[in-house]
Computed example of a mutant assay.
Amino acid sequence: MPTPYRCPNCKTNKTRFNFIKQVPEFVKVDPETGEVLEIYDNTQLDPFHLPYNGPDIKIQCAVCGLIEDEKMFAKFGESSIQ
């Protein structure tokens, strides 16, 4: 079920948002040059490479520019209904 959003910063925006999809790319880089040496598949990470465990989506307020987790905008959206 969709959740209403409201910006926790400007507190007035309830309709204009940018959804930012976070798609991690797992890489190993050269410490001297920064050149990508290897690209890993999520299922084939080496023991010293932790998988990404952050949110799949972030929300940006299209009025003030604040970028936060979706939960933050949803929580403020719920409080505006009551």
Results as ranks from 00 to 15, higher is better:
residue 3 T to H: 13
residue 4 P to R: 05
residue 4 P to N: 03
residue 4 P to F: 01
residue 5 Y to Q: 11
residue 6 R to G: 02
residue 6 R to S: 11
residue 7 C to V: 11
residue 7 C to H: 10
residue 7 C to A: 12
residue 8 P to G: 10
residue 8 P to H: 14
residue 8 P to T: 12
residue 10 C to T: 05
residue 10 C to H: 07
residue 11 K to P: 01
residue 11 K to C: 10
residue 12 T to A: 12
residue 12 T to K: 14
residue 13 N to F: 05
residue 14 K to T: 15
residue 14 K to R: 13
residue 14 K to G: 11
residue 15 T to K: 12
residue 16 R to G: 02
residue 16 R to K: 13
residue 16 R to P: 00
residue 18 N to I: 15
residue 18 N to T: 14
residue 18 N to H: 14
residue 18 N to Q: 13
residue 18 N to R: 14
residue 18 N to A: 09
residue 18 N to Y: 15
residue 19 F to P: 00
residue 20 I to Q: 06
residue 20 I to A: 05
residue 22 Q to C: 09
residue 22 Q to F: 05
residue 23 V to Q: 09
residue 23 V to Y: 04
residue 23 V to G: 00
residue 25 E to Y: 06
residue 25 E to F: 04
residue 25 E to K: 14
residue 26 F to E: 04
residue 27 V to K: 09
residue 27 V to Q: 08
residue 27 V to P: 00
residue 27 V to M: 04
residue 28 K to S: 08
residue 29 V to P: 02
residue 30 D to L: 06
residue 31 P to H: 02
residue 32 E to V: 10
residue 33 T to S: 13
residue 33 T to P: 00
residue 34 G to Y: 01
residue 34 G to E: 02
residue 34 G to L: 01
residue 35 E to H: 07
residue 35 E to R: 12
residue 36 V to K: 01
residue 37 L to F: 01
residue 37 L to W: 01
residue 37 L to Q: 12
residue 37 L to T: 03
residue 39 I to V: 15
residue 39 I to P: 00
residue 40 Y to V: 00
residue 40 Y to R: 00
residue 41 D to A: 04
residue 41 D to C: 02
residue 42 N to H: 05
residue 43 T to G: 00
residue 43 T to V: 01
residue 43 T to Q: 07
residue 43 T to C: 00
residue 44 Q to N: 12
residue 44 Q to R: 11
residue 44 Q to C: 05
residue 44 Q to K: 14
residue 45 L to P: 06
residue 45 L to C: 06
residue 45 L to T: 06
residue 45 L to K: 07
residue 46 D to R: 06
residue 46 D to L: 08
residue 48 F to T: 07
residue 48 F to V: 04
residue 49 H to N: 00
residue 50 L to P: 06
residue 51 P to W: 07
residue 51 P to N: 11
residue 51 P to Y: 07
residue 51 P to L: 08
residue 52 Y to D: 02
residue 52 Y to A: 05
residue 53 N to M: 13
residue 53 N to C: 08
residue 53 N to T: 13
residue 53 N to E: 13
residue 54 G to D: 08
residue 54 G to I: 09
residue 55 P to D: 14
residue 55 P to H: 12
residue 55 P to W: 06
residue 55 P to S: 15
residue 57 I to F: 09
residue 58 K to E: 10
residue 58 K to Q: 10
residue 59 I to A: 04
residue 60 Q to T: 07
residue 61 C to Y: 02
residue 61 C to K: 02
residue 64 C to F: 01
residue 64 C to T: 03
residue 64 C to N: 02
residue 64 C to H: 03
residue 64 C to Y: 02
residue 64 C to E: 04
residue 65 G to H: 05
residue 65 G to M: 09
residue 67 I to C: 09
residue 67 I to E: 14
residue 68 E to A: 15
residue 68 E to L: 15
residue 69 D to W: 09
residue 69 D to V: 11
residue 69 D to T: 13
residue 70 E to F: 00
residue 71 K to Q: 06
residue 71 K to Y: 01
residue 71 K to A: 11
residue 71 K to R: 08
residue 72 M to V: 14
residue 72 M to N: 05
residue 72 M to H: 05
residue 73 F to Q: 11
residue 73 F to H: 12
residue 73 F to I: 10
residue 73 F to E: 10
residue 73 F to N: 11
residue 74 A to E: 15
residue 74 A to W: 06
residue 75 K to M: 12
residue 77 G to K: 12
residue 77 G to R: 11
residue 77 G to L: 11
residue 80 S to C: 11
residue 81 I to M: 15
residue 81 I to P: 06
residue 81 I to S: 15
residue 82 Q to A: 13
residue 82 Q to R: 13
residue 82 Q to E: 15
